[in-house]
Design a binder for these strands. Sequence first.
RNA 1: CGGGACAUAGCGCAGCCUGGUUAGCGCGCCUGCCUUGGGAGCAGGAAGUCGCAGGUUCAAAUCCUGCUGUCCCGACCA
Length: 575
Amino acid sequence: MKYSNLFAPTLREVPADAEVPSHILLLRAGFVRQLASGIYSYFPLAWKTLTKIINIIREEMEKIGAQEFLLPAIHPAEIWKESGRWEIMGDNMFRLKDRWERDMCLGMTHEEIFAHIASKELKSYKELPQIWYQIQTKFRDEPRPKSGLLRVRQFIMKDSYSFDIDWDGLSKNYEKHYEAYQRIFKRCGLKFLIVEAHSGSMGGSFSHEFMVESDAGEDLVAKCSNCKYCANLEKATSIIEEIVDSEPESDEPIKVHTPGKKSIAEIEEFLKVPARNQIKTLIYIVESEPIIILLRGDHQLNEAKLETVLKTGTFRPATEEEIREIMGANAGSLGPVGVKNIRIIADLALKGRKNMTTGANETDYHIQGVTPEKHFNAEYYDLRNVEEGDLCPKCKSPLKLVKTIEIGHIFKLGTKYSEAMGAYVLDKDGKKVPIVMGSYGIGVERIMTSAIELYHDKYGIIFPITIAPFEVAIVPVSNKDEKQMEISEELYNKLKNMGIDVLLDDRSERIGVKLNDIDLIGIPIKIVIGPKKIKEGKVEVVLRDGSERFDVEIEDAVEKVTFKIEELKKKIENS
RNA sequence: CGGGACAUAGCGCAGCCUGGUUAGCGCGCCUGCCUUGGGAGCAGGAAGUCGCAGGUUCAAAUCCUGCUGUCCCGACCA
């Protein structure tokens, strides 16, 4: 490709709407433009990079025996009603009607459709296992698109689905994806974490996320400073320092007047009771029934864990009025003691504690000397958020919390969708059994975006060579100089004939403009063709990451550059 | 959905508070000259229904109301 023939509208200034580095650079480097909130047009450079990523994904999927499909992006409502997700997906689903007023939607994911196909086409265990995948556009009406391409409403996803006769088979296919995903992200040049994850509205029992550590990320991951333990905050557990409580002054709780003191912090100050010696009482409404949730005063409720415990995602904090009606006291004076006919669940950190302080269920009163399991009964579960500095559940070293971007997620679904969609096969004994499914997703744009977040400097993007829009840029100092252009063209043709993705910057721009654009775009290798070096019979080779800059004899240039490309690729393979 | 901010030429911004003739600046763009080792210089030029709709006023980019769009924080989110 010659630059004179390339549409890459680079910007000198930082667009006002962009904040995170990848968003700024994607706009500045002429990769993308926004059409509407969370909806982007991909210009040629972006599409070149995305295509390279897609090719890597495709190669690795083929290696595990996956077969590529392309399914519709527009779906009839019925199929989503069968699985129950027509309701569950709520406002996140783009919905429309056809000319006959039939409900339709844009595909957010394809468990339903693939399970539907399986239900129609798969008859026997002999046809299993299968891995089916596609690389296709997904639509999700996010409540808050943000950070450029990091959270969008339309994006490309590689989604695959495995179909097995039993859970053993599923485990094998899960493992295959686990390995393939590692190879994919590695080949794309990313540094990533694999974390235990919460499976949310996908259902299923078991999942891992592939995460890139980045300040632009939205997920928090608890990461052990010593061992390999790594889990999404939604799922992470930890060991906390044991607390030795003093004995209460009396057998029964003592009521104290706490006028106007509502928060944990206010009580801490007023009664001189540390937050860790208080019980935080939350009232939630679960499918219209109230529930009491108890946590240590300084702990935070983790709603993902709550969802797992409640086995439903339909819950919300009670309103102030509801609280008064249910508890007979204002929020801020609530407690579990004396409560009847309401389910009480408590975080494990409260188990075995004594002499604690909590609300008296009488506005402006608290009670002290409360001992769980003596003064109230509760079901105990892990309900709290892990905090920085908590101890690793595996090795007891301190945990760190890091922000991450989710680039891939793999799920063991089990039979949820096959049962809902009627995907059964006959087993060896001629018995009808539901197919055991897994589902596996990769956010294609997020690979590109994460790479930019990971690798950039004040000049622009520093792409890993495997996903850079071009591998090499040839930059003559002046396109008016015949000698320079002759050498440039020859190098260009030779490299191109070798199958190397090379860009010749033949524009009538000054050298500074050209180099700045090439750096902004993130091309890993530059060959600068200038009069000074030509006199010595040489050209200059510069690596974008700043690691190397050297001169080569003109006749050796092709060999040296191809060697360098291989070296850069190997470095990524072996990282 | 709650909170905050912004909307003036392709991009970045000033002007608005305190209303007043042809709405400015930098970059970019076009023409010519010149120049080419890290975003040159000179000369000339084009380009804006001031987000939209109402209202106040002799007069609105400027004041008021409503709407729309975009961004940020939070909630939410496979």
